[in-house]
């Protein structure tokens, strides 16, 4: 359907960044509320919430700048951290409900966020695999956008 030479994947990366940004916002907002209002109720869960929020912010930034080698490496670390986080915390929350009495982004594999936290790291890893920085890529975004009137 679309011409074969169109770098669709680059554009999809932008959607990925947008989803990460929304998740970072959601996680930051929630952990802020949890920590300000009732940190003592579930210190472990809320500390994890705050850490995960920070990592989502980092991942968002790293994906935006992932054309540089340094940020590409940061993106890997952040996304793998999330993957491990959601898998470990997701599993633990199934069996040790007492450790996570309150919801976090990662408990129950992110079910409170329609499982986006579970799916996202896998999409992220796939995207990083297909977008190594030294690879010759299509022309940068502004150049390939056709003029449109709207």
């Amino acid at each position: 359907m679309a011409p074969a030479n169109r770098p669709r994947i680059t554009g999809l990366g932008r959607v990925l960044v947008a989803v990460y940004a929304v998740l970072a916002l959601a996680a930051t907002g929630r952990s802020l509320v949890q920590i300000v209002e009732r940190f003592d109720a579930a210190p472990l869960a809320f500390t994890l919430s705050a850490i995960s929020a920070g990592v989502y912010i980092l991942a968002t930034a790293a994906l935006i700048f992932s054309h540089s080698r340094f940020w590409y490496a940061v993106a890997w670390v952040a996304i793998v951290f999330e993957m491990v986080g959601v898998l470990v915390v997701g599993s633990v929350s199934l069996f040790r409900h007492d450790l996570f009495p309150e919801e976090t982004v990662w408990s129950w594999f992110g079910s409170g966020y329609v499982f986006v936290p579970l799916i996202l790291p896998f999409v992220g890893v796939w995207w990083l695999f297909t977008h190594r920085p030294g690879h010759v890529q299509a022309a940068p975004a502004p150049a390939r956008i056709e003029r449109s009137v709207w």
Partner: peptide, 16 residues
């Protein structure tokens, strides 16, 4: 950035 993916991004925003 007026690309088709920006339209998708707006969709993600509205869904959130």
């Amino acid at each position: 950035e007026r690309s088709r993916w920006s339209t998708v991004v707006m969709g993600v925003a509205a869904g959130s």
